[in-house]
Amino acid sequence: HIQSGDEFKDLWVEGEVSQARVSPAGHVYFTLRDNVGQLQCVLFASQAAQIALTPRDGTKVLAHGWVEFYHREGRCQLRIDDVRPAGAGDAFLRLEALKRRLVAEGLFAQERKRALPAAPRRVGVVTSPIGAAWRDVQTVVARRDPRVELILAPALVQGVGAVDSLIGALDGLGQLRELDVVIIARGGGPSEDLAAFNDEALVRAIARFPRPVVCGVGHETDVTLADHAADLRAPTPSVAAELVVPDSTRHQVAAERLWRRIATRTREALESRRRRLGEARRLVERRAPPAKVAALRQRLDEDRRQIDRAVSRLVPTRRQRLLGSQRRLQALSPLKVLGRGYAIVEGADGRVRASAAMLRTGERARLRMRDGRANVTVEGVEKSG
């Protein structure tokens, strides 16, 4: 009857947008709600490309379209072909007004944020004991550092009574002395399910908590007032656990790297000392008397070898020079002249008579020839020319 009648084919519906999401294909899915009820809507990519306004959570819009009924699922859906702004939604405006008031009070100021402990030993967790968030936190902490003790403070995380339950869990953890940090965790869901984390009473409870608080509520795109009040916001419960608990394996690797560095430095220092000791020993041996005697003996042996080499080179040279001088002397010797038939005339006084004028008749003389001497008497002197 809904699809067959014309009264549901040309509708304008006004409401506040919630749970808006865009598919990879470009289709926009969202819910229009008011104080009475809500209606699921779809804006296909072909129509969305022609509309300037894209539905966003918290905005109030006028949507035009027609109703489609799915018999198998028993649900209705408004197929949108036009969207126009109708002002901000009432819930969105109330949330923004509360946020501005809390900002003015300084509850979200950065200087109020406390640093997380470097090595926590006891971590409180405020979440549902049956939800996926508690299992995710346990898994991450067991993997990163199993020595950390988790203390669960069970609480409702949505619906009626969730705010009081969350505040009671926080107050209970606040009574523990040996507690390092607290994680408030909840998985993702529609914005209506996260309403407790935008409640003013819970925000103030987080701000006054005596220990650092990490808020990991919803998904990456979900930002609540509790996130602003916490000392640190995490996009998911798993990331909250990673931010709170350092990875012990990383510290172990760093310790092993430091140990290897110390061992290397120690070996280098020992090698340096060993080299210096060897050099000192050799220096002492060089300066000791036995070492000096050995050095002098070595120098003497070297000098002796140098003298022997010099003599061995000098004797042949001198022998050759002597033979040369001997040959020159023999060539200049008068006896060589005598060998060619000449003779030397010596007077009775033994002096050589080099000219005939030096001889007198009747003087006794001696002739020196190649093979001997002869005594003669001068019978006469004939001068040349």
Rank of each mutant, 00 (worst) to 15 (best):
A229R: 14
A234K: 06
I262L: 15
A226W: 14
C215W: 12
D222F: 11
R260K: 09
H219Y: 01
H251T: 08
S238H: 09
R257Q: 13
P246H: 03
G216Y: 03
P246S: 08
H228P: 05
V239L: 13
T236I: 06
A226P: 15
A205N: 14
V239E: 11
A234Y: 05
F209V: 02
R211D: 00
G218L: 10
V213N: 01
T236F: 06
S238Y: 08
L243Q: 13
A230N: 11
F209I: 00
A254C: 01
R208L: 14
T264M: 04
L258G: 04
H228W: 14
L232K: 06
Q252A: 09
L258F: 05
A226F: 13
H228Y: 15
D231K: 01
W259Y: 05
E242A: 10
P237G: 03
L258N: 06
V239F: 09
S238M: 07
C215V: 15
P210Q: 09
L225H: 08
V245G: 08
A226T: 15
T266E: 14
V203I: 15
D227Y: 00
D231H: 02
A254R: 11
F209R: 00
D227L: 00
H251C: 03
V213P: 02
P210G: 01
I262Y: 11
V253E: 12
R257K: 11
V239D: 13
E256T: 06
A230T: 01
V217M: 14
S238D: 02
Q252G: 05
A240D: 05
Q252E: 08
T221D: 12
A240G: 12
R265I: 02
D227S: 02
V253F: 07
R257E: 11
H228L: 15
L243V: 04
H219E: 01
R267S: 07
V214T: 03
A255Q: 11
L232Y: 10
E256W: 10
L232D: 10
V244Y: 04
V244H: 03
R267Q: 11
A205G: 13
Q252F: 05
A254T: 05
R261K: 10
L232N: 07
S248Y: 05
